[in-house]
């Protein structure tokens, strides 16, 4: 076995990691319950007296999980404030972002054998920013539909405006549904890319979301984006 020296980089705060896993569970639960709400399964009960109010339950789960997911953003924001490694934005405004993106993309298209080392490569950064946009759309349309159960409330007033921007409540449902599928597509790609990075490239993409540390062979190009550069943690 070839000996490889790796440096340790502290990237993700515990707050971000907990948030991430809440998000994973939330998305799975929200997607499954959402599909059931759109296309309910027929109750097996034919006698109303003995039926269970399972649609009601599924809707409740959908709403409660949505609130938990939304609330978990407090962790994300707190981590964002206290830890530099939680701020791995795509640097759209910098020229190198596009050069590096092309480099990474060429590698993923098998036109280059490898790409430079990153704490988080620019393509991944852009895709995560995209995910937050999708989640934001889900939140906005979802809560708008939810709060309009009572248009009298303050939230109802804001929601009415959102529904108008969507072009009617049915359109809000439609947008909510398609964007949910968009998130699932993201999840497929994300799951593959992190597993590939972890087990083929040795970039500790999966383990970092548990431990918070990345163990990298090369000095990543964006090492300054994390608080502790790896020098003192040679292993």
């Amino acid at each position: 076995m070839k000996e490889v020296k790796r440096k340790e980089f502290y990237v993700f705060s515990p707050f971000l990691r907990v948030f991430h896993w809440i998000m994973v569970v939330s998305i799975v639960v929200l997607f499954c319950t959402g599909v059931i709400i759109a296309t309910p399964l027929q109750s097996v009960n034919l006698e109303p007296t003995y039926s269970v109010t399972y649609m009601d339950l599924v809707r409740d789960i959908h709403f409660v999980v949505a609130f938990i997911f939304a609330a978990s953003f407090i962790l994300r924001v707190y981590g964002f404030v206290i830890n530099k490694g939680d701020r791995l934005f795509p640097h759209f405004w910098k020229g190198y972002f596009y050069r590096q993106t092309i480099e990474v993309a060429l590698h993923y298209m098998f036109l280059k054998y490898e790409h430079s080392s990153f704490l988080r490569n620019p393509l991944a950064r852009a895709s995560y920013a995209m995910l937050y946009v999708l989640v934001a759309v889900e939140f906005i349309t979802g809560f708008a539909m939810y709060f309009l159960a009572n248009p009298d409330s303050i939230w109802g007033g804001i929601s009415a405006w959102i529904i108008m921007v969507c072009g009617g409540e049915m359109m809000a449902h439609l947008i909510h549904h398609y964007v949910a599928w968009g998130i699932i597509l993201f999840a497929i790609g994300h799951l593959y890319m992190v597993i590939r990075a972890e087990f083929m490239e040795g970039e500790s993409e999966v383990s970092a979301m548990f431990s918070g540390y990345k163990f990298l062979i090369h000095n990543p190009k964006d090492a300054t984006d994390s608080d502790l550069s790896g020098e003192k943690h040679l292993i």
Binding site: V35, A38, T39, M170, H173, L174, H177, Y178, W181, I184, L185, I188
Partner: peptide, 18 residues
């Protein structure tokens, strides 16, 4: 939903693309 809309059945489209 999922059949509502110009594109057709959203869930079928989603499943196919997925």
């Amino acid at each position: 939903l999922p059949k509502y809309g110009k594109l057709g059945n959203a869930d079928k489209i989603g499943t196919a693309v997925g």
